[in-house]
Write a protein that binds this DNA or RNA. Structure first.
Lengths: 168, 168
DNA sequence: ATAAAGTTTCAATAATTTTTGAAAGTTTAA
DNA sequence: TTAAACTTTCAAAAATTATTGAAACTTTAT
Protein backbone atom coordinates (compact mmCIF):
# COMPACT_ATOMS: atom_id res chain seq x y z
CA UNK A 1 0.00 0.00 0.00
CA UNK A 2 1.10 3.54 -0.77
CA UNK A 3 1.80 5.90 2.08
CA UNK A 4 -0.87 8.31 0.85
CA UNK A 5 -3.49 5.57 0.77
CA UNK A 6 -2.37 4.30 4.15
CA UNK A 7 -2.80 7.76 5.66
CA UNK A 8 -6.33 7.98 4.35
CA UNK A 9 -7.11 4.55 5.70
CA UNK A 10 -5.76 5.47 9.10
CA UNK A 11 -7.80 8.67 9.22
CA UNK A 12 -10.90 6.79 8.17
CA UNK A 13 -10.39 4.03 10.74
CA UNK A 14 -9.76 6.50 13.54
CA UNK A 15 -12.86 8.45 12.56
CA UNK A 16 -14.99 5.32 12.59
CA UNK A 17 -13.68 4.18 15.95
CA UNK A 18 -14.33 7.64 17.34
CA UNK A 19 -17.92 7.71 16.19
CA UNK A 20 -18.54 4.28 17.71
CA UNK A 21 -17.33 5.69 21.02
CA UNK A 22 -19.37 8.85 21.06
CA UNK A 23 -16.64 11.07 19.67
CA UNK A 24 -17.46 13.22 16.71
CA UNK A 25 -16.10 11.69 13.50
CA UNK A 26 -14.49 14.88 12.32
CA UNK A 27 -12.80 15.43 15.64
CA UNK A 28 -11.29 11.96 15.52
CA UNK A 29 -10.19 12.50 11.92
CA UNK A 30 -8.51 15.82 12.63
CA UNK A 31 -6.74 14.16 15.52
CA UNK A 32 -5.64 11.30 13.27
CA UNK A 33 -4.36 13.73 10.66
CA UNK A 34 -2.28 15.62 13.20
CA UNK A 35 -1.02 12.39 14.76
CA UNK A 36 0.62 11.29 11.55
CA UNK A 37 1.81 14.71 10.56
CA UNK A 38 5.44 15.47 11.44
CA UNK A 39 4.83 19.20 11.26
CA UNK A 40 2.21 21.38 12.85
CA UNK A 41 -0.57 22.26 10.40
CA UNK A 42 -2.62 25.39 9.81
CA UNK A 43 -6.40 25.50 9.84
CA UNK A 44 -6.33 25.86 6.05
CA UNK A 45 -4.21 22.75 5.60
CA UNK A 46 -6.55 20.76 7.79
CA UNK A 47 -9.61 22.09 5.94
CA UNK A 48 -8.04 21.05 2.65
CA UNK A 49 -6.83 17.66 3.77
CA UNK A 50 -10.23 16.63 5.15
CA UNK A 51 -12.54 18.77 2.97
CA UNK A 52 -14.25 20.46 5.87
CA UNK A 53 -15.37 24.04 6.37
CA UNK A 54 -13.53 26.69 8.30
CA UNK A 55 -16.19 26.79 10.99
CA UNK A 56 -16.08 23.07 11.49
CA UNK A 57 -12.29 23.03 11.58
CA UNK A 58 -12.20 25.82 14.12
CA UNK A 59 -14.71 24.23 16.47
CA UNK A 60 -13.11 20.81 16.17
CA UNK A 61 -9.66 22.18 16.90
CA UNK A 62 -11.01 24.01 19.91
CA UNK A 63 -12.56 20.78 21.20
CA UNK A 64 -9.33 18.87 20.69
CA UNK A 65 -7.48 21.50 22.68
CA UNK A 66 -10.17 21.14 25.35
CA UNK A 67 -9.47 17.43 25.48
CA UNK A 68 -5.77 18.18 25.89
CA UNK A 69 -4.88 16.27 22.73
CA UNK A 70 -3.44 19.03 20.57
CA UNK A 71 -1.96 22.46 21.07
CA UNK A 72 -1.54 25.70 19.22
CA UNK A 73 1.89 26.69 18.01
CA UNK A 74 3.15 29.96 16.65
CA UNK A 75 5.97 30.15 14.18
CA UNK A 76 8.37 33.08 14.38
CA UNK A 77 7.44 35.86 11.99
CA UNK A 78 4.08 34.31 11.05
CA UNK A 79 0.59 35.37 11.97
CA UNK A 80 -1.01 32.00 11.34
CA UNK A 81 -1.71 29.53 14.10
CA UNK A 82 -0.38 26.03 13.75
CA UNK A 83 -1.76 22.95 15.43
CA UNK A 84 0.31 20.09 16.71
CA UNK A 85 -0.72 16.78 18.30
CA UNK A 86 1.03 15.16 21.20
CA UNK A 87 2.39 11.97 19.61
CA UNK A 88 2.92 10.05 22.84
CA UNK A 89 0.22 7.41 22.69
CA UNK A 90 0.34 6.76 26.42
CA UNK A 91 -0.22 10.45 27.10
CA UNK A 92 -3.14 10.37 24.69
CA UNK A 93 -4.69 7.36 26.38
CA UNK A 94 -4.28 8.97 29.79
CA UNK A 95 -5.68 12.26 28.60
CA UNK A 96 -8.76 10.59 27.13
CA UNK A 97 -9.19 8.47 30.26
CA UNK A 98 -8.86 11.56 32.43
CA UNK A 99 -11.45 13.56 30.50
CA UNK A 100 -13.97 10.75 30.19
CA UNK A 101 -13.58 9.90 33.85
CA UNK A 102 -14.30 13.49 34.75
CA UNK A 103 -17.12 14.04 32.27
CA UNK A 104 -18.88 10.69 32.45
CA UNK A 105 -17.76 8.36 35.20
CA UNK A 106 -17.78 10.88 38.02
CA UNK A 107 -21.32 12.17 37.41
CA UNK A 108 -22.55 8.59 37.30
CA UNK A 109 -20.73 7.75 40.53
CA UNK A 110 -22.42 10.71 42.13
CA UNK A 111 -25.88 9.54 41.05
CA UNK A 112 -25.18 5.95 42.09
CA UNK A 113 -24.13 7.19 45.48
CA UNK A 114 -27.35 9.11 45.95
CA UNK A 115 -29.34 6.11 44.81
CA UNK A 116 -27.48 3.80 47.19
CA UNK A 117 -28.90 5.73 50.07
CA UNK A 118 -32.55 5.28 49.12
CA UNK A 119 -34.22 3.39 51.91
CA UNK A 120 -37.15 1.04 51.66
CA UNK A 121 -38.80 -2.15 52.76
CA UNK A 122 -36.38 -5.08 52.67
CA UNK A 123 -39.35 -7.37 52.07
CA UNK A 124 -40.30 -5.57 48.88
CA UNK A 125 -38.79 -7.36 45.85
CA UNK A 126 -38.90 -4.12 43.86
CA UNK A 127 -36.76 -2.43 46.47
CA UNK A 128 -34.42 -5.36 46.95
CA UNK A 129 -33.70 -5.73 43.24
CA UNK A 130 -33.21 -2.01 42.79
CA UNK A 131 -30.85 -1.81 45.71
CA UNK A 132 -28.81 -4.82 44.68
CA UNK A 133 -28.32 -3.67 41.10
CA UNK A 134 -27.42 -0.13 42.14
CA UNK A 135 -24.97 -1.35 44.77
CA UNK A 136 -23.32 -3.83 42.44
CA UNK A 137 -22.93 -1.28 39.68
CA UNK A 138 -21.61 1.18 42.22
CA UNK A 139 -18.92 -1.25 43.34
CA UNK A 140 -17.86 -1.95 39.78
CA UNK A 141 -17.75 1.76 38.99
CA UNK A 142 -15.61 2.43 42.04
CA UNK A 143 -13.14 -0.24 40.94
CA UNK A 144 -12.97 1.20 37.46
CA UNK A 145 -12.46 4.63 38.95
CA UNK A 146 -9.60 3.43 41.12
CA UNK A 147 -7.93 1.66 38.24
CA UNK A 148 -8.17 4.76 36.06
CA UNK A 149 -6.77 6.81 38.90
CA UNK A 150 -3.74 4.52 38.99
CA UNK A 151 -3.40 4.68 35.24
CA UNK A 152 -3.38 8.45 35.29
CA UNK A 153 -0.38 8.45 37.61
CA UNK A 154 1.46 5.57 36.03
CA UNK A 155 4.23 5.16 33.54
CA UNK A 156 3.25 3.11 30.55
CA UNK A 157 5.78 0.33 31.00
CA UNK A 158 5.04 -0.09 34.65
CA UNK A 159 1.29 -0.12 34.05
CA UNK A 160 1.21 -2.76 31.34
CA UNK A 161 4.03 -4.66 32.98
CA UNK A 162 1.98 -4.99 36.13
CA UNK A 163 -1.26 -5.86 34.41
CA UNK A 164 0.08 -8.30 31.88
CA UNK A 165 2.39 -10.00 34.36
CA UNK A 166 -0.50 -10.73 36.68
CA UNK A 167 -2.61 -12.02 33.83
CA UNK A 168 0.09 -13.93 32.01
CA UNK B 1 -35.87 9.94 47.82
CA UNK B 2 -38.81 7.74 46.93
CA UNK B 3 -38.18 4.40 45.28
CA UNK B 4 -40.25 5.40 42.27
CA UNK B 5 -38.23 8.58 41.76
CA UNK B 6 -35.00 6.70 42.31
CA UNK B 7 -35.92 4.22 39.61
CA UNK B 8 -36.56 7.00 37.13
CA UNK B 9 -33.29 8.63 38.03
CA UNK B 10 -31.42 5.39 37.54
CA UNK B 11 -33.02 4.81 34.14
CA UNK B 12 -32.21 8.34 33.10
CA UNK B 13 -28.58 8.13 34.25
CA UNK B 14 -28.05 4.80 32.52
CA UNK B 15 -29.56 6.18 29.33
CA UNK B 16 -27.31 9.20 29.41
CA UNK B 17 -24.19 7.13 30.05
CA UNK B 18 -25.17 4.84 27.20
CA UNK B 19 -25.58 7.66 24.73
CA UNK B 20 -22.21 9.10 25.70
CA UNK B 21 -20.69 5.74 24.89
CA UNK B 22 -22.30 5.22 21.52
CA UNK B 23 -25.16 3.10 22.79
CA UNK B 24 -28.67 4.08 21.86
CA UNK B 25 -30.38 5.88 24.74
CA UNK B 26 -33.51 3.79 24.56
CA UNK B 27 -31.54 0.58 24.55
CA UNK B 28 -29.70 1.62 27.69
CA UNK B 29 -32.96 2.67 29.34
CA UNK B 30 -34.72 -0.59 28.57
CA UNK B 31 -31.72 -2.40 29.97
CA UNK B 32 -31.83 -0.24 33.10
CA UNK B 33 -35.53 -0.91 33.53
CA UNK B 34 -35.04 -4.66 33.32
CA UNK B 35 -32.02 -4.52 35.62
CA UNK B 36 -34.05 -3.13 38.46
CA UNK B 37 -37.11 -5.22 37.78
CA UNK B 38 -37.42 -8.36 39.91
CA UNK B 39 -39.79 -9.93 37.42
CA UNK B 40 -39.55 -10.41 33.68
CA UNK B 41 -41.58 -7.79 31.79
CA UNK B 42 -43.68 -7.90 28.64
CA UNK B 43 -43.19 -5.64 25.65
CA UNK B 44 -46.32 -3.75 26.67
CA UNK B 45 -45.07 -3.11 30.17
CA UNK B 46 -41.79 -1.80 28.79
CA UNK B 47 -43.59 0.40 26.27
CA UNK B 48 -45.71 1.85 29.05
CA UNK B 49 -42.90 2.35 31.53
CA UNK B 50 -40.72 4.24 29.07
CA UNK B 51 -43.37 5.70 26.75
CA UNK B 52 -41.96 4.20 23.61
CA UNK B 53 -43.63 2.69 20.58
CA UNK B 54 -44.08 -1.00 19.94
CA UNK B 55 -41.66 -0.92 17.01
CA UNK B 56 -38.98 0.76 19.04
CA UNK B 57 -39.46 -1.62 21.94
CA UNK B 58 -39.27 -4.64 19.69
CA UNK B 59 -36.08 -3.55 17.92
CA UNK B 60 -34.42 -2.50 21.16
CA UNK B 61 -35.22 -5.80 22.83
CA UNK B 62 -33.85 -7.65 19.84
CA UNK B 63 -30.62 -5.63 20.06
CA UNK B 64 -30.28 -6.29 23.77
CA UNK B 65 -30.66 -10.00 23.13
CA UNK B 66 -27.98 -9.65 20.43
CA UNK B 67 -25.67 -8.10 23.01
CA UNK B 68 -26.37 -11.03 25.31
CA UNK B 69 -27.72 -8.76 28.04
CA UNK B 70 -31.31 -9.97 28.27
CA UNK B 71 -33.27 -13.03 27.36
CA UNK B 72 -36.79 -14.05 26.44
CA UNK B 73 -38.83 -16.02 28.89
CA UNK B 74 -42.10 -17.82 28.46
CA UNK B 75 -44.53 -18.28 31.28
CA UNK B 76 -46.57 -21.45 31.45
CA UNK B 77 -50.02 -21.05 29.93
CA UNK B 78 -49.27 -17.59 28.47
CA UNK B 79 -48.74 -16.54 24.91
CA UNK B 80 -46.88 -13.37 25.77
CA UNK B 81 -43.12 -13.14 25.72
CA UNK B 82 -41.38 -11.86 28.81
CA UNK B 83 -37.96 -10.26 28.95
CA UNK B 84 -35.49 -10.68 31.73
CA UNK B 85 -32.07 -9.12 32.31
CA UNK B 86 -29.07 -10.92 33.67
CA UNK B 87 -28.50 -9.14 36.99
CA UNK B 88 -24.91 -10.20 37.50
CA UNK B 89 -22.99 -7.00 36.93
CA UNK B 90 -19.72 -8.78 36.26
CA UNK B 91 -21.42 -10.85 33.56
CA UNK B 92 -22.81 -7.66 32.07
CA UNK B 93 -19.41 -5.99 32.03
CA UNK B 94 -17.84 -9.03 30.42
CA UNK B 95 -20.60 -9.32 27.86
CA UNK B 96 -20.25 -5.67 26.85
CA UNK B 97 -16.47 -5.99 26.75
CA UNK B 98 -16.76 -9.11 24.62
CA UNK B 99 -19.11 -7.54 22.10
CA UNK B 100 -17.23 -4.26 21.80
CA UNK B 101 -13.95 -6.08 21.46
CA UNK B 102 -15.37 -8.12 18.63
CA UNK B 103 -17.23 -5.29 16.90
CA UNK B 104 -14.77 -2.45 17.36
CA UNK B 105 -11.36 -3.39 18.68
CA UNK B 106 -10.73 -6.35 16.41
CA UNK B 107 -11.50 -4.52 13.15
CA UNK B 108 -9.19 -1.71 14.23
CA UNK B 109 -6.43 -4.17 15.11
CA UNK B 110 -6.78 -5.63 11.66
CA UNK B 111 -6.40 -2.24 9.97
CA UNK B 112 -3.48 -1.28 12.21
CA UNK B 113 -1.77 -4.50 11.28
CA UNK B 114 -2.12 -3.81 7.59
CA UNK B 115 -0.89 -0.27 8.07
CA UNK B 116 2.11 -1.48 10.07
CA UNK B 117 3.35 -3.27 7.01
CA UNK B 118 3.41 -0.22 4.74
CA UNK B 119 7.00 0.29 3.64
CA UNK B 120 8.69 3.56 2.77
CA UNK B 121 11.74 5.74 2.97
CA UNK B 122 13.13 5.91 6.51
CA UNK B 123 14.50 9.36 5.68
CA UNK B 124 11.04 10.71 4.93
CA UNK B 125 9.60 12.45 8.00
CA UNK B 126 6.08 11.83 6.73
CA UNK B 127 6.74 8.12 6.62
CA UNK B 128 8.59 8.01 9.92
CA UNK B 129 5.87 9.84 11.81
CA UNK B 130 3.13 7.74 10.26
CA UNK B 131 4.92 4.53 11.08
CA UNK B 132 5.70 5.51 14.65
CA UNK B 133 2.14 6.56 15.47
CA UNK B 134 0.64 3.47 13.87
CA UNK B 135 3.08 1.16 15.64
CA UNK B 136 2.58 2.80 19.01
CA UNK B 137 -1.20 2.67 18.72
CA UNK B 138 -0.93 -0.91 17.60
CA UNK B 139 1.05 -1.86 20.69
CA UNK B 140 -1.43 -0.14 22.98
CA UNK B 141 -4.35 -1.82 21.23
CA UNK B 142 -2.70 -5.23 21.59
CA UNK B 143 -2.26 -4.66 25.32
CA UNK B 144 -5.87 -3.62 25.70
CA UNK B 145 -6.91 -6.67 23.73
CA UNK B 146 -4.88 -8.99 25.97
CA UNK B 147 -6.27 -7.43 29.10
CA UNK B 148 -9.84 -7.80 27.84
CA UNK B 149 -9.11 -11.38 26.92
CA UNK B 150 -8.06 -12.03 30.50
CA UNK B 151 -11.10 -10.24 31.83
CA UNK B 152 -13.39 -12.37 29.72
CA UNK B 153 -12.05 -15.51 31.33
CA UNK B 154 -11.73 -14.18 34.85
CA UNK B 155 -13.79 -14.28 37.98
CA UNK B 156 -14.69 -10.86 39.29
CA UNK B 157 -12.98 -11.17 42.66
CA UNK B 158 -9.79 -12.52 41.19
CA UNK B 159 -9.70 -9.84 38.51
CA UNK B 160 -10.16 -6.82 40.76
CA UNK B 161 -8.14 -8.42 43.50
CA UNK B 162 -5.19 -8.72 41.15
CA UNK B 163 -5.53 -5.27 39.66
CA UNK B 164 -6.17 -3.36 42.82
CA UNK B 165 -3.52 -5.19 44.79
CA UNK B 166 -0.86 -4.27 42.27
CA UNK B 167 -1.98 -0.68 42.21
CA UNK B 168 -2.57 -0.24 45.90
C1' DA C 1 -6.53 55.29 11.98
C1' DT C 2 -6.82 51.77 8.54
C1' DA C 3 -6.56 47.68 6.16
C1' DA C 4 -4.98 43.15 5.73
C1' DA C 5 -4.63 38.67 7.82
C1' DG C 6 -6.44 35.70 10.50
C1' DT C 7 -9.99 33.72 13.97
C1' DT C 8 -14.48 32.98 16.00
C1' DT C 9 -19.36 32.71 16.16
C1' DC C 10 -23.81 31.07 15.15
C1' DA C 11 -28.23 30.84 12.50
C1' DA C 12 -29.45 28.14 8.82
C1' DT C 13 -28.94 23.78 6.46
C1' DA C 14 -27.65 19.10 5.86
C1' DA C 15 -26.79 14.58 7.41
C1' DT C 16 -27.53 11.05 10.47
C1' DT C 17 -29.85 8.52 13.86
C1' DT C 18 -33.91 7.30 16.24
C1' DT C 19 -38.73 6.57 16.59
C1' DT C 20 -43.27 5.81 15.11
C1' DG C 21 -47.21 3.29 13.64
C1' DA C 22 -49.62 0.66 10.68
C1' DA C 23 -49.42 -3.33 7.74
C1' DA C 24 -47.70 -7.87 7.24
C1' DG C 25 -46.45 -11.95 9.42
C1' DT C 26 -46.77 -15.72 12.88
C1' DT C 27 -48.53 -18.70 16.34
C1' DT C 28 -52.07 -20.72 19.08
C1' DA C 29 -56.60 -22.28 20.38
C1' DA C 30 -61.07 -23.45 19.32
C1' DT D 1 -60.21 -23.05 8.91
C1' DT D 2 -60.62 -18.89 11.28
C1' DA D 3 -59.76 -15.36 14.26
C1' DA D 4 -57.63 -13.55 18.14
C1' DA D 5 -53.25 -12.59 20.29
C1' DC D 6 -49.06 -11.42 19.67
C1' DT D 7 -44.56 -10.18 17.06
C1' DT D 8 -41.89 -8.24 13.36
C1' DT D 9 -40.82 -5.16 9.71
C1' DC D 10 -39.86 -0.97 7.51
C1' DA D 11 -41.05 3.41 5.04
C1' DA D 12 -41.98 7.80 6.63
C1' DA D 13 -41.55 11.36 10.23
C1' DA D 14 -39.27 13.34 14.05
C1' DA D 15 -35.42 14.32 16.71
C1' DT D 16 -30.79 14.95 17.19
C1' DT D 17 -26.24 16.04 15.82
C1' DA D 18 -22.85 17.89 12.66
C1' DT D 19 -21.55 21.18 9.14
C1' DT D 20 -21.52 25.21 6.45
C1' DG D 21 -20.49 29.87 5.30
C1' DA D 22 -20.73 34.48 5.81
C1' DA D 23 -20.60 38.21 9.09
C1' DA D 24 -18.47 39.87 13.20
C1' DC D 25 -14.57 40.12 15.68
C1' DT D 26 -9.49 40.47 16.86
C1' DT D 27 -4.78 41.25 16.06
C1' DT D 28 -0.87 43.13 13.79
C1' DA D 29 1.71 46.09 10.71
C1' DT D 30 2.02 50.33 8.47
Amino acid sequence: MELAAAKLKFIEAWGKLGSEWGINRTMAQVHALLLISPEALTTEEIMDALSISRGNANMTLRDLIGWGLIEKQHKAGERKEYFFADKDVWNIARQVAKERKKRELEPVLKVLNELSSVVGDEKDPEYKTFKKSVNDINKLAVNVDKTLETMLKAEENWFWGSILKVFK
